[in-house]
Design a protein around this nucleic acid. Sequence first.
DNA 1: TCAAACAATTAAACAAATCTAAAAGGTTTA
DNA 2: TAAACCTTTTAGATTTGTTTAATTGTTTGA
Lengths: 347, 347
Amino acid sequence: MGNRNLAQKIKLSTIAEALGLSTATVSLALRDSPLVADVTRDRIKEKAIELGYIYNRRAASLRTSRSGIIGVVVHDIMNPFYAEILKAIETELDRSRQTFILSNHYDSVDKQRNFIETLLQLGGDGVIMSPAIGTPASDIRLAEDNGMPAILIARSVPEIDVPTFRGDDAYGTALATNHLISLGHTRIAMIGGTDHTSTGRDRYAGYANALKKAGIEVDPQLRIPGPRTKQSGFEAAVNFLANPLKPTAAVCWNDLVAIGLMNGIARAGLVPGKDISVTGYDDLEEAAIATPALTTVWNGQSEVGRFAARALLDKLNGSSEADGLHLIKPEMRIRQSTSPLNPGAGR
Amino acid sequence: MGNRNLAQKIKLSTIAEALGLSTATVSLALRDSPLVADVTRDRIKEKAIELGYIYNRRAASLRTSRSGIIGVVVHDIMNPFYAEILKAIETELDRSRQTFILSNHYDSVDKQRNFIETLLQLGGDGVIMSPAIGTPASDIRLAEDNGMPAILIARSVPEIDVPTFRGDDAYGTALATNHLISLGHTRIAMIGGTDHTSTGRDRYAGYANALKKAGIEVDPQLRIPGPRTKQSGFEAAVNFLANPLKPTAAVCWNDLVAIGLMNGIARAGLVPGKDISVTGYDDLEEAAIATPALTTVWNGQSEVGRFAARALLDKLNGSSEADGLHLIKPEMRIRQSTSPLNPGAGR
DNA sequence: TCAAACAATTAAACAAATCTAAAAGGTTTA
DNA sequence: TAAACCTTTTAGATTTGTTTAATTGTTTGA
């Protein structure tokens, strides 16, 4: 067992000895310092490749206190909403030779704190997080106080002033609700999600205010909360269709819930988009290819990811500070899952 | 800019000085060494918490050469197939206090090698990878030769003998094809995917052999390759429906392609599962809630992830070696997207 | 011509932990 | 009472790269 490492590890001193130089020169040369003569640098680099030298970042970061590691924690990387944000972050960070460490917290504050601690142990340069429900301010401060700047995405944390990027949820749900109202719907349910997050409260407020402004009474019976998954939307269909208030339209928490709901409606023999109008939220890739194509609200995932990554890189470079909340304005995407109220509708 | 770190960093020596002990004792105590007296250990641990000490893994790993980092690279973490594998890996690794670093390679061999190099620089303990198309044996050896064991999932690499876990693709597609044949279909297309990977070749072989065995001619015109996404399945529908051979059923590369294809078929005014039978592959969560519910082949994602993680942990602990290929046997999941051949079908 | 400036290189300190071998202190045994 | 033997603690070396200040040799300028 374990006679790997046949050849002993190649380190700076191996190269230095092979060339009759000091480790200082080799170190400087490999980092393209102008202090080293061109000829010397070339010889060193050649030798490094020849010997298969591998730079030891842990040793280096011990001295420099920059590890090149950036942490990202979200609720669930499998969720396409976060996946789209992550892709934007990845694209942005890739340019700056930072490695990023990814983790799910599944809304467990403990798992999230565990991640922050691990990241601190590894000397993480910064962290981008979509905070778990109930995240205490102290957990963000733990990172900040130990020299690891934090950026928040998708959700805010009370009493915390770090740069925060998310969509304007109240505005976005109001867009969707107004769209349905303009089509003649008045019995509009809101499906999925929770009211325990800033996002949840904002989305409900957007929906409720839009109804009120149009002179439609807000009936709490029409609010059906639940997980933010297709499965949950699918299951909500039964409740939705059995509702005594006979809603004719649904504002869904997100596209996943909406697609699940449409599947459930179809399974019950009704035609989503004709018998029942459905709006999603996020405008995921698959919204456009759902059947019927889903009317939804674009939530600026790519913007959120890109801005967050940039804000972090800026902070690391000591330049501008973008503390506080930055709201991205959502936009309506109208497709085939919504249609004018059918006079005989409501079952 | 940057007057964070108000208090200077707390390290072992800070604790040691505060208690009038040596760093050696503190180091041993925090790792629960039996060499340290119980009273002393308790005092030290208390002080560590009081001061907010954060363990510096980079410094430690410099001496111990175990970083606690495990790397995982797959084609695309957004793809639910990999996401399910990743979840299984995460669950398994979580128990062993390893941090895992995730990356996409999008089938770019360069991006993949880049990741391996970064991981080596960080002192990664091991790597689990679903190798990019065209991965040379030398890239796997780069990891292994530098003391970082590799485990392969989902795909094999020629000339490489490291532990490899994947589904039995030939067997699985044969299952799906036979299912369709048993329903009376003879004009069966195969949609999506590529023939440039071991997986691709195996799947095509499974499909083709099943047809041959049943005395059905294999028509290369019925093979429509393409990306492995919903989008691509959706777009393939047009081609599929226009095919002069009027296929009545489709064996799809995976569930995503199948769901996309069904959406495309529905968009064209036909009823998937009645007019055209469709099978998927993987049995993702959403296969069951698609409309119609998708007949598919379970590909053992969770098993692959769990086995791979265990094999790596075993290797790190120097115990058993599971080199070579391990095939997981897929199973048929019959739902509503397939039905007996309608005599008047084929458009 | 000599001091100052400059270019290239290096010795040695340093980062924060671990680990080995030895010391210190106390108790038991011969 | 000295030797042997624990138990607990520690000095100091070690890990690999970075950085500072010093060194050596060369060139420039007055």
